[in-house]
Design a protein around this nucleic acid. Structure first.
Lengths: 225, 225
DNA sequence: TAGATTGTTAATCGATTAACAATC
DNA sequence: TAGATTGTTAATCGATTAACAATC
């Protein structure tokens, strides 16, 4: 027993977080059961895909009935590792860092902001949310003395690599990277990139594309021009 | 001539934005040419994949030489649709919205914030970045009278669907959605979701996974330890 | 039992990669 | 020409989907 391990494909992990969000919503609204078809429709997916994704959690549904919302929620959190709380530090207190320090969604999912750092002496000591900004030099001693799991990196691109190196040396094992520059992952450090400008570019492309499709609905299957 | 169209796979579009970011960096540093192998290594990809991705732009490289940075940059922007500027409105001026209003990266990529809206009368009239916050009721008249392409949605989940409907009625064709709720795309509205808490969950899973792998390096290919 | 829905297999589809001819 | 690198084909790999037996 206790043997679900086996790496889950990234695409599935990504959807598991979406299922989780829906399930938490359902739990709040008092819904006890859910079918794969319902989740699929809600998220714009195929119901086979939902069942296959959920089967990565083990046998967690009931044939003829569906999935119990509460159990499914717990199973996803267990697999993701978010059934416990994670200590997170925030590095770089510019506009974005400041906003992230106050963002409710992190805490709700068990991510605890335990410290905030900036290299600007002007900012050190200032309050941001419930935290007092520390000097970047205090980062390593802090991480060594306190349990820290992840870092949210919101510094300028020019500083990102050196700060990331510092984080790795200190023993942080994951970085959520908002800086518009590639920070390579390695064995002891996982980096999850988030570039907001790139997201807008992706959106722009989708918009252009969908307009083109609606204008000339040719080269759809079977065109014989 | 002029016939690159043909929808580009989402995975490729996603990487095109990454290539673009690297290329812009190279352009700033005065580099004139780049090889697929270099881009691949920089981004942790396969060089075949880079060439295949770039071939979606047409024949844009020079055999034996590589790609000219400036031309490649322009070609990617043309395909993405970011060779022109886009008018963007920001809806929901909480912590995140406020930070996004000051974010430099958008403007640098040609996304112009032209207005900011909030439903809270207390906030209306306040200055955010260079913009004065307007009432949400002014959204429709504004969008009808001014050219607006995209909206950045940073309202609470509870308001997101109704605001999205309003945006669609007004004629906005794309939404970058930061609210933790699914807004369905449709023919005339494309939604690009960004959920920061989910990104942290994905990171958490990767971290757990990589720790497991380093602890018990079994089921790797061909280990003979 | 009859009806419903999962879990899983097999088939399809699409994306990645290796390899190499084309060509600078 | 010799050396290098693209563009593209064919092979591989992985992810999605349809279909259905298992079972609640």
């Amino acid at each position: 027993m206790a043997k679900p391990r086996a790496a889950i494909p990234a695409a599935t992990v990504s959807r598991l977080t979406l299922y989780l969000r829906e399930l938490q919503q359902m739990e709040r609204s008092g819904t006890s059961h859910v079918r794969s078809g319902w989740l699929a429709e809600r998220l714009g997916l195929n119901d086979s895909q939902v069942r296959r994704d959920l089967s990565c959690l083990g046998q967690v549904g009931q044939r003829g009935v569906g999935y119990r919302v509460h159990e499914l929620t717990a199973a996803i959190q267990r697999v993701l590792g978010t059934d416990r709380s994670w200590n997170v530090i925030l590095v770089g207190i510019g506009n974005l860092g400041r906003a992230l320090s106050k963002y409710r969604g992190f805490d709700q999912q068990g991510f605890r902001l335990v410290a905030a750092f900036d290299s600007d002496p002007e900012k050190v000591g200032d309050q941001v949310g419930t935290l007092s900004i520390k000097d970047l030099n205090e980062l390593e001693p802090f991480v060594v003395s306190q349990p820290v799991d992840l870092a949210i990196l919101a510094v300028p691109a020019s500083e990102a690599l050196s700060v990331a190196a510092k984080l790795q040396r200190a023993g942080v094992s994951g970085i959520l990277n908002f800086a518009p520059i590639v920070i390579p992952s390695n064995e002891s450090l996982t980096v999850q990139p988030v570039d907001l400008a790139l997201e807008l570019q992706r959106l722009a492309y989708s918009v252009v594309q969908s307009k083109q499709e609606s204008h000339d609905p040719k080269d759809l299957p079977d065109e014989d021009g």
